[in-house]
């Protein structure tokens, strides 16, 4: 298949940031499933409308791991509104591009985040 990943993607794949769980997370959201081939769970801790902490677990390919890692890095410390602007396009650009057939993997984290926030707001 050929892995045409750039060094940034490889670096995040090999040393993903913010992997794990947050025991007292304010909201936890999962997108995807093993049937889709990719699955991601986000744990989010909010404080004063800011992302105080965010962690993820994923069952997914290299691109899913790398883009989820970068996403958590980009949104940590941001306000919810700012974080919602970190779309998959933003992630792909920030990581320096992805092979065409791997772009879909970068949707996981932004999708999970958007759903998590909707879930959180519905609870409030």
């Amino acid at each position: 298949m050929g892995f045409e990943f750039n060094e940034n993607v490889i670096e995040h794949f090999e040393n993903p940031r913010n992997v794990g769980e947050i025991p007292d997370a304010d909201v936890i959201e999962t997108v995807g499933s093993p049937v889709c081939g990719d699955m991601l769970t986000l744990y989010i801790k909010l404080k004063d409308d800011k992302i105080e902490d965010i962690k993820f677990k994923t069952y997914g390919c290299g691109a899913a791991i790398a883009t989820s890692s970068l996403f958590t890095e980009l949104v940590k410390g941001k306000t919810v509104e700012e974080a919602l602007k970190v779309t998959s396009d933003v992630v792909v650009e920030a990581i320096g591009g992805l092979p065409e057939k791997k772009v879909h993997c970068s949707l996981l984290a932004p999708d999970a985040f958007k759903q998590a926030i909707e879930k959180y707001r519905a609870k409030q």
């Binding site: 298949m1 794949f13 069952y59 997914g60």
Partner: peptide, 14 residues
Amino acid sequence: AGVEGEALILSLDR
């Protein structure tokens, strides 16, 4: 169980 194949192939390749 719990491991996605393509990620494993990438790690092995590295």
